[in-house]
Simulated assay, not measured.
Amino acid sequence: MDGLKLRNVGKTDLQLSALGLGCWQFSNGRGLIGGYWSSIAERGVSEIVKTTLDGGINWFDTAEIYGRGGSERTLANALSRLAVATDRVVIATKWWPLGRRAASIAQTFPERVKCLSPYPIALHQIHQPFSLASIPSQMREMARLYEQGLIRAVGVSNFSAAQMRVAYKALAGYGIPLASNQVKYSLLDRRIERNGVLDTARELGISIIAYSPLEQGILTGAFHRAPERLRTLRGARKLQVTAKRIETSRMLIDRLEEIAKKHDATASQVSLHALVTLHEEAVFAIPGASSVQQAQENAGALHLSLSDDERREIQEMSLRVSDNG
């Protein structure tokens, strides 16, 4: 598979590259969620965005909760500084539901538009299944945005198989397909293959968007090569990237690096390419990038050409070491 073509998201006409850029790290270190990452200078963000686009990635995923709109504004500012045409990029963002009712979707949408201006919102997503409102009422509000031509597609995030079915059925009542479910998924975390999420998504024609596809950096091999990096981690990331997980994943990382060497690539590129080709075109992924080098590596994953035997071996080894619980 020499170069991954654009794919339709679910049953929509929205065409995206198999990889997008996750923009959580553009939060400027603001807020409880945004503070997970250190701030990146304006020039650095622009360079990351330019490298991403030049590498063939055509979409960016952000969210209201990332720095309380900070990530959205930072992304839009970078695109504007680069004079990127509005029809050259696709923007996905998310409504934060915690403690809110469905009416909040319409009430907060103008702020999303303002933060991302002049770039339109193509894919609008429910960030978590934690709203005070029912899923059908949330889908009703999303349908109104769609019918007004304010968005091109509706998605959800972190929804279970059952919750996804409810959202799908509710949207279908308006003649609108549920485009996607954004969930945690990687070669080291394949729980959606066990809990019905992936099977349900494929049955209903809903795309999976994988976040944390590199497991917070574990699948890059950086911590295996330099375990002392573990001491530099902060916050919640320390709970996810542990010495135990580094050791249990070593066998997979070693093989990813061997395969990568044959293709003049990196372990992270092989990992990303394998993930978005495991299930034909059902899975997209949104790795982040805090540097130009990481952005180059992400985009390079689109252009690998792994053999069927290599993909099969990665699949089998991944299943042996992944979190399936």
Score class of each variant (00 low, 15 high):
7 R>T: 09
17 S>G: 12
20 G>C: 09
21 L>V: 12
24 W>G: 07
34 G>K: 01
36 Y>F: 15
37 W>T: 13
40 I>F: 10
44 G>V: 11
46 S>P: 13
49 V>D: 01
51 T>A: 13
57 I>H: 03
61 D>P: 05
63 A>K: 05
66 Y>G: 14
68 R>Q: 15
75 L>A: 06
85 A>T: 12
92 A>D: 04
92 A>Y: 05
102 A>R: 09
103 A>S: 15
106 A>Q: 10
106 A>N: 12
107 Q>T: 14
109 F>S: 13
119 Y>P: 01
122 A>V: 12
124 H>C: 11
140 R>C: 10
141 E>Q: 09
151 I>W: 04
158 N>A: 03
164 M>E: 05
168 Y>S: 12
169 K>Y: 07
171 L>W: 01
174 Y>V: 04
179 A>M: 07
179 A>F: 11
181 N>D: 08
189 D>A: 02
205 G>R: 14
206 I>L: 13
207 S>R: 13
217 G>A: 08
223 F>G: 00
226 A>C: 11
227 P>A: 04
227 P>H: 06
227 P>K: 03
241 V>T: 04
248 T>E: 02
249 S>Q: 05
249 S>W: 01
251 M>T: 14
256 L>C: 08
260 A>S: 10
265 A>D: 00
271 S>W: 00
272 L>S: 00
280 E>H: 11
282 A>T: 07
287 P>S: 05
291 S>P: 03
295 A>K: 12
297 E>I: 10
298 N>V: 02
298 N>G: 02
310 E>H: 06
315 Q>V: 13
317 M>G: 08
318 S>P: 15
